[in-house]
Nucleic acid binder design. Structure first.
Lengths: 192, 192
DNA sequence: TTCAGCGCGTAGACACTGTCTACTCAATCC
DNA sequence: GGATTGAGTAGACAGTGTCTACGCGCTGAA
């Protein structure tokens, strides 16, 4: 489907997704999006009351994309540990290959404005994470806490690695050891 | 020392620190800082070539503050596990009580511009983290990887908790369980 | 003592941003 | 067929960061 075939609302979001994917968050202004969609800068207002609303719609597409990749990466696998590893790798890959989108998705003002609807965007993914953790550590404490700590660990690796902090601090050029260390810490060392 | 006694360069940074502490990152514009420092909007340019340079100087003060708090919290303690717990708590406390500053310190554009000088700001703290981790897990793999994963875990908890994501996902109103889960995961369960 | 040089702050312009309001204009409906 | 309405246009407005020309007081050398 061509961009021109969509109604403006969908087109604006699509333009935004493309823009943030190709050029990052910096040029993601209301006026630039309108320009690339071929409409005047006032047009988006008919569909998104404010710039933040449009950005939220774009970020939501990022969460959908992430969820889709997670589903794709885990389908066919049954071993919980394997599924969890695949999930973690998808998360880190996403942060690395779609930097701009990842940055947008976790922008403070977006998250805090409540427009993103975390219930729809990240909670489903977190639920499967919790299930897998519960399956791997059945006798332990509240799996939501364990899953939360694991999620935080992965997210932290994704962020700090993206900024180069971890690369600098650990002196390695590969995220893989950090990924393995995080998973091992939370799930116990992997079986060989 | 009164603000008026400092030269403008130091005054601008101090005004910025106060401003971001009291009102967050949103009003932290070049012109607003100049206004509160009682000078014209062009004055900062004599001391900071660009807005980002001024923000970096402000953020650097945040890193210094964090390091000072970490030193204060660990002094007098000798047990590595205790020191590590105190360190972690300082990190989470800082993120919670100085939200605006924490947000500024880890702004993408600041970190990526290279102006912050991670070598001076975060590496010293990371070095002590690595030492403590090495002391607690002497026989294991590269302590820098382990310490990196732990740091990432703490940072992730700080971020996701601040955004409310973890509160929502885990269903608790207290970070403490997440802190303990993170430490236990990376260091083994605490001795009783 | 005078005067050039300079450090440092002022004032205004510029291009850009997000928001708001008045307007056009085609499609729809009674 | 004329009124209504939805959707996009065009321009104004206040705010932003940056840049440039200007001024003013201090310093140091002749």
């Amino acid at each position: 489907m061509n961009d021109q075939d969509m109604d403006l609302k969908a087109r604006l979001v699509q333009v935004g997704v493309d823009l943030v994917t190709e050029e990052g968050t910096q040029p993601l202004t209301l006026r630039e999006i309108a320009r690339r969609a071929g409409v005047s800068h006032g047009a988006p207002r008919r569909h998104f009351p404010t710039h933040l609303d449009l950005l939220s719609a774009i970020a939501r597409r990022g969460f959908e994309d992430l969820a889709a990749r997670a589903a794709e990466a885990t389908e066919g696998r049954t071993d919980p540990r394997e599924r969890l590893t695949a999930l973690a790798r998808v998360y880190l890959d996403f942060a690395r290959t779609r930097r701009g989108m990842f940055e947008l998705m976790f922008r403070h003002d977006l998250l805090e404005s409540g427009r993103l609807g975390l219930r729809d965007t990240s909670l489903p993914l977190f639920a499967t994470l919790t299930e897998l953790v519960a399956a791997l550590r059945p006798d332990d404490q509240d799996p939501r806490i364990l899953a939360g700590a694991l999620w935080a660990g992965l997210h932290g690796v994704a962020q700090l690695w993206g900024w180069g902090s971890l690369r600098l601090a650990t002196g390695t050029d590969d995220v893989e050891p950090l990924l393995r260390a995080t998973l091992d810490a939370h799930l116990g060392p992997a079986a060989r």
